[in-house]
Design a protein around this nucleic acid. Structure first.
Lengths: 216, 216
DNA sequence: GTATTGCTCATACGTTCGTTTCAATCATAC
DNA sequence: GTATGATTGAAACGAACGTATGAGCAATAC
């Protein structure tokens, strides 16, 4: 059980590949194990042999992509020195998602953020909360005028832009006459950083925003 | 079929209420008709009698909330005159979601944006595309320095922030030590408008954003 | 060789899903 | 009153789901 030979028949990885593709595209509930094994070209029972349950498979797919992403995030944040700029922080947080296996990492990431099941929220805590706190600290240092609350909200907005962007680049092309091409990833990343950085630098909201009792 | 008596037994509305609550919370696939009829306290067959299919019920729930929201959006945009400010445009687009039946309208709205099923994307086109185009025009007028492409991207980011915020205020509290309270809706709306307005006003991205070939 | 272990296969279990059926009910029209 | 047509109820349909089982196969250990 511990250090067995491991013939590397790679069916385990084929399952993970198919799982991250389909989970990322369609979400957890909308993806069946039969979809995954069909995509992977393996037997249905293999998924229960290598991973025990569907939830475990989801977590394994998350872990495989999220761990290198998070490592790279911390790496980039550290490399930016003791006083990173806002853009450096945002790039450290966002750019690892766009590299190497972008479609998959990105899809899974937004599924973590978007799936309301309680076990997925635990995955969020496990794989994301620590990194997020590290970045909140860096943002507080870079933006001393903002309260921690304000920073959390704006990071939340940024994460939403990212998540929305990634899971479904599908929505936008339909209304944009092809002007938005989500597959040009470096450009998308740059646009997102530009947008988010400006949002973070906005003066903190002080009271009324011109609602006039609209949202009472 | 046309002008039948209509005893208003309100079981149809009870189904819609339950549907918009549960669809908004858990999404389309993760919500079963039995969940809905249990929540509504009606018989399972009633949903197939009043609405024919699960997809039709989803669309009916969307339509009931989206139509007044979209009407109010256009109303506010028109009320802002011929040259609305960026904040007026964003408020016109976002504030109707936070009024009256906010949790439900908001949850359904983000489900439209987040569900990859093809029929949901058709709902997006049907209920959202027209309004979105109207707002893109207004934004182009208010921000003449930005290309249409740039505006579409930033509206996309804003929609993502909104969608993420709404469907799952659940994620943030867990890492924010309670500092973010999504139920204080006027404050959330104001923060979102502040963030998005600053993002829209950012200088358009011109070329490189400091990636250094990271996302090659 | 045989034994053992790691893995894959076909198949089936029990449950839940969306949908359907049809008899029972109710308010109104006559 | 009875007839009519709109609604509701209990029960069931076939299909798809996640999971489990046990035989079969390949490779190493002895």
């Amino acid at each position: 059980m511990s250090n067995t030979p491991q013939r590397v028949p790679d069916t385990k990885e084929r399952i993970l590949d198919a799982a991250e593709k389909l989970f990322g595209q369609n979400g957890f509930t909308a993806t069946s194990l039969r979809d995954i094994t069909a995509e992977a070209g393996v037997n249905l029972a293999a998924v229960n042999y290598h991973f025990q349950t569907k939830e475990s498979l989801f977590e394994a797919a998350i872990a495989r992509r999220m761990e290198p992403v998070n490592r790279r995030r911390i790496e980039l944040l550290d490399a930016a020195g003791a006083n990173p700029t806002l853009e450096q922080i945002l790039l450290a947080f966002l750019s690892p998602l766009f590299v190497r296996h972008p479609n998959e990492a990105i899809g899974l990431m937004s599924q973590i953020l978007a799936t309301p099941d309680s076990f997925v929220r635990q995955l969020f805590k496990k794989h994301l909360a620590g990194v997020v706190n590290r970045f909140v600290e860096a943002l507080q240092q870079a933006l001393p005028n903002l309260t921690r609350t304000e920073i959390l909200w704006r990071l939340h907005f940024t994460a939403g832009s990212m998540a929305h962007l990634m899971a479904r680049g599908s929505v936008l092309p339909e209304i944009s006459e092809g002007l938005c091409n989500p597959s040009d990833r470096p450009a998308v990343l740059a646009r997102l950083v530009t947008f988010a950085a400006a949002g973070f630098r906005a003066d903190a909201w002080g009271g009324d925003a011109g609602l006039g009792g609209e949202a009472a």
